[in-house]
Design a protein around this nucleic acid. Structure first.
Lengths: 212, 212
DNA sequence: ATAGTTCTGGACTGATCAGTTCAGAATAAA
DNA sequence: TTTATTCTGAACTGATCAGTCCAGAACTAT
């Protein structure tokens, strides 16, 4: 009945996410965002509320994009789209795939952004507790998935260790966070791959790719 | 011959460092800094140049405060003050002491700040490469010290592993960065201690305190 | 074509930012 | 006390910030 939106909502949202990911929340000025999203000021406020609400949507989108490849291993492709939680196999392979996929198999520019959730936790910790907590909760969900993976691997005798699944998952998240810092530090693909291989080895995840 | 400064330069610098540590570079507005440092606007510009130069001095100060406890283990207290590099023993105990000292034996408020260097690397990565690189270099110095510690431990048969000292040091730094993220996430003392113990165990550093 | 609705560019708001300036207060030496 | 020097409070600069507003453009359904 009336004029339709002249832009693709999700495309604009993704553009905003990428800019926030690169620069952080505070350093993204509205004109930069509008330019990247290719929409006008009024449209942003009409469609997304304000800068903060837009950012929250970006956190959600980023989480989906991060969590899905973790639940959906390449061997088990597209079937369980909904939650990605019920039918997945929680295997250690999915953890390895997650790291390799999100750190190595990614263009250099993206890799150097680190992780939006980690970046947000640090940036907003004293600035906006709610945003920081939001990002933190999402990281916790990932950690819980790690824990389930280790628990299943231990139960299935795939993994032989005296450490508890909780401890392993926690450590896995600690290494993950450290790796994201290293990524944003601008370390080279080789360095990151080396750190990653050593991390996986240490967690008892023996890579297929490096055993040759 | 003339009026002396009405404030203690180093005390003001430390106050600025703490504020930057808590809030990050961008979120520290000049009025907040002036208030914390208890000096006037003109004095700040006369004494420290500008906000950016002040921040650089704060990075240096933070590095000193972080690196010294690493070089000076409690067993080897105050003698080697100058560089802390020549005479130190590079033992694994110094690594353990470093972590326990800077993460656990610290008031809650400080712990929740994480690490100024890590925070800065992330915040300034796309904002001010030079500042980010400055913080990054300091982290690299710490990593190199880790590596020397592991090398010496391996040579002295204190540590038995097939991993190289370089890999161990790199991993140690990855865990360190992950722990600082976890700290700023606001995790409890217990959680951090658990992660820390598991990290040390994984690196082959067997704590005295948890063997009871 | 017309009418009805929705979208959007650009101007505007008041607040805040980092950095500059300078008159006058404060000090030390004479 | 006077003088020379230095420090400092407060006002000012121009730029930029997030968010508001509205007149007019753009589109659909009739």
């Amino acid at each position: 009945m009336a004029r339709p939106l002249s832009f693709d909502r999700t495309a604009s949202l993704e553009a905003a996410m990428i800019l926030f990911w690169q620069r952080g929340y505070q350093a993204c000025a509205l004109p930069d965002l509008l330019n990247a999203m290719n929409i006008s000021r009024s449209s942003l406020y009409a469609t997304f509320g304000d800068k903060r609400q837009l950012f929250i949507e970006c956190l959600d989108l980023f989480f989906q994009r991060t969590f899905n490849p973790l639940c959906q291993t390449p061997s088990q492709p597209r079937e369980t789209k909904n939650q990605g939680d019920k039918n997945s196999d929680y295997s250690l392979i999915s953890i390895e795939h997650f790291f390799r996929y999100t750190i190595l198999q990614v263009p250099k520019k993206r890799r150097a952004c680190g992780c939006l959730l980690v970046n947000t936790v640090l940036e907003m910790a004293e600035q906006d507790r709610e945003l920081s907590a939001l990002a933190s909760e999402k990281l916790t969900k990932v950690e819980q998935y790690f824990i389930r993976c280790f628990a299943k691997a231990k139960a299935g005798k795939t993994l032989n260790t005296d450490a508890s699944a909780e401890d392993l998952g926690q450590l896995c998240m600690t290494l993950n966070q450290g790796l994201r810092v290293a990524s944003r530090q601008g370390r080279s693909q080789q360095e990151l791959e080396s750190i990653l291989n050593n991390s996986l080895k240490m967690l008892g995840i023996h890579s297929q790719k490096e055993n040759t």
